[in-house]
Design a protein around this nucleic acid. Structure first.
Length: 423
RNA sequence: GGAGAAUUGGCCGAGUGGUUUAAGGCGACGGUUUUGAAAACCGUUGAUGUAACCGCAUCCGGGGGUUCGAAUCCCUCAUUCUCCGCCA
């Protein structure tokens, strides 16, 4: 969330920056509530001070004395004034929180202005499109009998957009997870295997709640949610903690299945593996000092790219414009892999710097060694990579004329030496 | 799932309604001493908010209540441990 004090002191500036996201935000109510908060806090604290002072006086008095009884009646009144202020203050804070919680992060200054996807900027390309001397197929057409990706049986046992992976595809899904994690361990990340179910506080800490409740699978009758990304459990490991400065940056890699309702994307990508309610993802998360977050953001992007490079898959890096930026992000790069079967680039990773937006929500801080002050840490994360989409990319890029699929060399040790997949 | 016990600052730990406005210890940091180190001695050492500063307020697992006053009494939830049951 945004810093309420900064917001109130710079209300016009903040309003202007938020406008870049393509929507208008009215902050006047927030300003009003913040003023009320200040008044009520003052009333409350002044009365508490009186109570505290008299508490010690009263302790020494004879409990039956006239003076004591008089003092007690006096204190009764002050106490009730104080309590009243406390109750009102809690109400104001709740309203204020609710409003601020729904405000997205401020885009960084150098994020390109734009309304949506079409205004994103392509920064660079890596590799080249594969040369195929035949008409490339979509990944689902490479497996017409659903021997590898069984969409129909997935629907039968669960529902639409749940898929059963079989045989070499199941092996590849598992191989990719290990391959990715191993590579990131070599780059100095610590491996985490978190729960796939998280509570409301964790979901709020990283920004999925309260605004995006409709996108999450909630467990019936409990305040528990299926993780939409490993970002949620992993970032929130340090929720409400003060991390010693010399432990930063924290670099973590985690695999989880990810569960998303995909509300609002009905009708998009109705075929194939691109958009599922459950998918696998290897996620990188960093917790850094503010002065390091930009550098670490770029390094994380490079770590994500390295996986595609090792698999020799052609991709491009795109910087998201202000209108396409996610709710919690201040700056974001997408990696888009080339899919010959669909003849387009598709997002396979999203690498964001949140600055202190999640850190403030989740109360992730570190102690500055010199000043001894607690400072809100910056958080960064990115997919490295979305596993299902990587499999799709391999299928479509490594397909042969006869419909078989060559296993990328780097992946073979993880697939018991398998070189070719035949559907 | 059942029964019992516990939760206090970085760690250990005292504290059963008002000099606790959280003792004491360990650790850490600074100083004295020393050729250097250790030891000893002295001092400092949690968080949040607010304020230019002195300070003030809040925090004893979370939330709520009783009271003029709560770490302390009551309710509730969470977590941990022990025993029983069930189970991969």
């Amino acid at each position: 969330m945004l810093d309420v004090r900064y917001l109130c002191d710079n209300i016009d500036e903040v309003e202007g920056i938020l406008k870049k996201r393509g929507k208008d935000f009215d902050l006047s109510k927030i300003k009003e509530l913040a003023a009320q908060r200040k008044d009520l806090t003052q009333t409350y604290e002044l009365n508490q001070q009186k109570l505290n002072q008299n508490k010690h006086l009263m302790a020494k008095l004879d409990k039956k004395s006239e003076e004591f009884i008089q003092k007690r009646d006096e204190m009764k009144e002050i106490s009730s004034t104080s309590k009243e202020a406390k109750v009102k203050l809690a109400e104001v804070m709740e309203q204020l929180d609710e409003l601020v919680m729904f405000l997205p992060n401020l885009p960084q200054n150098d994020v390109p202005l734009g309304k949506g996807e079409d205004d994103n900027i392509v920064l660079r390309y890596w590799g080249e499109k594969p040369i195929l001397d035949f008409e490339p197929k979509n990944h689902w057409d490479l497996d017409p009998n659903q021997n590898l990706m069984d969409f129909e049986r997935g629907s039968k046992i669960t529902g639409t957009k749940f898929t059963v992976m079989k045989k070499a595809a199941a092996t590849m899904e598992r191989a990719l997870i290990s391959f990715m994690i191993d590579n990131h361990l070599d780059s100095g990340y610590d491996e985490i295997f978190p729960p796939f179910v998280v509570n409301k506080e964790a979901m709020t800490g990283t920004g999925q709640l309260p605004k995006f409740a409709d996108d999450a699978f909630k467990i019936d009758g409990m305040e528990y949610y299926l993780v939409p990304t490993a970002e949620v459990p992993v970032t929130n490991l340090y929720q409400n903690e003060i991390i010693p400065e010399d432990k930063l940056p924290l670099k973590m890699v985690a695999y989880t299945a990810c569960f998303r309702k995909e509300a609002g994307s009905a009708g998009k990508d109705t075929r194939g593996l691109i958009r599922q309610h459950q998918f696998n993802k290897v996620e990188l998360v960093k917790i850094t000092k503010p002065e390091d977050s930009h550098k670490e953001h770029l390094a994380l992007l490079a770590d994500a790219e390295s996986i595609l490079q090792k698999l020799n898959l052609h991709y491009r890096v795109v910087e998201l414009c202000t209108g396409d930026l996610g709710f919690s992000a201040s700056k974001c790069y997408d990696i888009e892999v080339w899919l010959p079967g669909q003849n387009k680039y598709r997002e396979i990773s999203s690498v964001s710097n949140f600055l202190d937006f999640q850190g403030r929500r989740a109360k992730i801080r570190y102690k500055n060694k010199e000043t001894k002050k607690n400072i809100i840490a910056h958080t960064i994360n990115g997919s490295a990579l979305a596993v299902g989409r990587t499999l799709v990319a391999i299928f479509e890029n490594y397909q042969q004329k006869d419909g078989s699929i060559v296993v990328p060399e780097a992946l073979r040790p993880y697939m018991r030496g398998m070189e070719v997949i035949k559907g």
